[in-house]
Design a protein around this nucleic acid. Structure first.
Lengths: 330, 330
DNA sequence: GCACACTGGGAAACCGCTTTCCGGGAGGTC
DNA sequence: GACCTCCCGGAAAGCGGTTTCCCAGTGTGC
């Protein structure tokens, strides 16, 4: 393993000079020495030891991103956005996946704190469990107390900068659009009530219907993934319009209906939430609420790095996109 | 920022003892001192500085994964597999995305080397550019020379442990299956010839057809993504069966046909490659070659960590999965 | 011609932790 | 009771960089 000292020795200069040449400094180094050092480094194949640099500088150039599940395109898009932004800042990215285990999330914050990462991004829904949230928050506070920055994509429950998708409002807007098509009997594939995102979307949808004076929809809980949508779709009864709280679930629902010979949108209309790019070619094309996922990820990183005194909370509106999976009732 | 020294002082013990208690050691520490240290650490909210640990230990517990594009479910699945395996080993993961720029790939290897990560996983197709490959290989050699381990998912071109999907054979098997259905006029949505993966799949398909004595397929180059498939599908002429070299392209092709009123599989059969989970609910269901992506990612990590003397190359067979997007010609 | 920046080089302290080495005390053996 | 081990605590030497501080040499301005 080649060290800076080896390089300095080979170039016949001091450690200080070698460091200034190779790893950046405000100080100038004469052209000849500079060349000697660079040549020596090249010949020896020197690579700075970042651990040592981090230790000496007291700051790393790494950020951490914690997501629930990378294979879920929702998180992949958010992570990608954040990673592009990070790359633009010359930062490296450490990614942790919790597989939806809140304990893992807490553990990651602790680990990333230990890594002294510059910033931590918590991407994904909070859960409705104040005990867990409190512990996460404590861990986060500890991290921030020692100079770390944090931001979150999801619900503003952690006292950090937050990019908050307008789940409630987006679902409400969707409900109004669907009601505008003449639907009155709705069902909601609500996902797990534990997940704030699922809960908010469901609540937004339900409350908008109530405001319109429409009957309460049937709310079917289940998992937050494709299979959750598939299963919940078995129980939508005589609803003419079904809202799945995310696109992946909606796709599961479409599959379920297809298998049972129920036509979408002729027999039942289906809508999702998120507008996942990978699912844009579904047949029938999915009505949904579009969220600018990549931008949200990037924005979260910006917020974290900007580090205002007071945590910023940014609402991100969703845009209702009507596609072929819904039809108007005359 | 609370350091180990603070903890030691507060507990009234030496640095050595505090270290042994908190950060693991072969040495025993007496129960009372151990308790004192733990209490002090807890009170102060101590988090070990990993940069310092890495420096002192001379080894980090981080691995690096370099992928082309996280939003492509193919890479997401591979990365997820590798990350699960890493988590099982207690390793943290640093993810870099190249967005298909080979220079970025080289740069990441250099950076990860600087980070002294335990292992580097290069996930994704090599490119048919020996100059670039050579430079990447040189960077990798430099990394390995200083004790790093590396593995690759893709083509065995780097002299490191490799998990190599049987692209050629898989595509050939698919070709035979499709020919068995009676098809004779084929087209291949071949992707970019630069990409070895695209090239191998295309070549495997073409050569299998040749062995069967069937006419040469029309080969249409293009991008490796959904839009590439969409565009290439415009030029498939009178082919009765179209092979897209990956599922995402196949989905693009399905969309193109749908728009033009060409029915799949009635008018044209379509097949892809990879068996991407997110795309399993496509209509019509996509015929494809299944690759155990998550396992491959996990396996690559295993290989990298195992670190035999001679690089291992593991072929991973693909399994042809016939679904509704193809039909038999009578 | 002299005081005075100013420039660029090097010695050495320091970042926070691990680990080797040393030493003192307890316990065992004959 | 002398001698040996074993056990466990602490001092201190690194790990590989960065950066402060000091110093010699070189232009400047008057």
């Amino acid at each position: 393993m080649v060290t800076l000292e080896d390089v300095a020795k080979q170039a016949g200069v001091s450690l200080a000079t070698a460091s200034r040449v190779l790893n950046g400094s405000t100080r100038q180094v004469g052209a000849d020495l500079r060349a000697r050092v660079e040549r020596a480094a090249d010949e020896l194949g020197y690579r700075a030891n970042i651990a040592a640099q981090t230790l000496a500088r007291g700051a790393s150039n790494v950020i951490g991103i914690v997501v629930h599940d990378l294979t879920d395109p929702y998180f992949a898009a958010l992570a990608d956005g954040a990673m592009r932004a990070a790359a633009g800042e010359g930062l490296l990215v450490m990614v942790g996946t919790t597989h939806r285990d809140p304990e893992q999330e807490i553990a990651y914050v602790a680990t990333l704190n230990a890594q002294r990462v510059r910033a931590v991004l918590l991407v994904g829904s909070r859960v409705a469990d104040s005990e867990v949230t409190e512990r996460l928050r404590a861990e986060l506070d500890r991290y921030r107390a020692s100079g770390g920055r944090a931001a979150c994509v999801g619900q503003d429950l952690l006292g950090v900068d937050t990019v908050a998708p307008a789940n409630h409002e987006g679902a409400a807007a969707l409900a109004r659009s669907l009601a505008g098509l003449g639907h009155t009997r709705f069902a909601v594939l609500a996902g797990p009530p534990r997940l704030m995102t699922a809960r908010d979307r469901c609540a937004g949808f339900v409350s908008a219907l109530a405001e319109l004076g429409l009957p309460e929809p049937r709310v079917i809980e289940g998992r937050f993934d494709r299979d959750g949508g598939y299963q919940a779709a078995q129980e939508t009864g005589d609803a003419t319009c079904v809202f799945a709280v995310n696109d992946v679930m909606a796709v599961g629902a479409l599959a379920a209906y297809r298998e049972r010979g129920i036509r979408v949108p002729d027999d039942v209309s289906v809508a999702g939430f998120d507008d996942i790019a990978t699912l844009r070619d579904q047949v029938p094309a999915l009505t949904t609420v579009r969220l600018p996922l990549q931008d949200m990820g990037a924005r979260a990183l910006e917020l974290a790095l900007a580090a205002e005194e007071e945590p910023t909370v940014e609402q991100v509106p969703g845009e209702v996109v009507l596609r072929e999976s819904v039809r108007a009732l005359r």
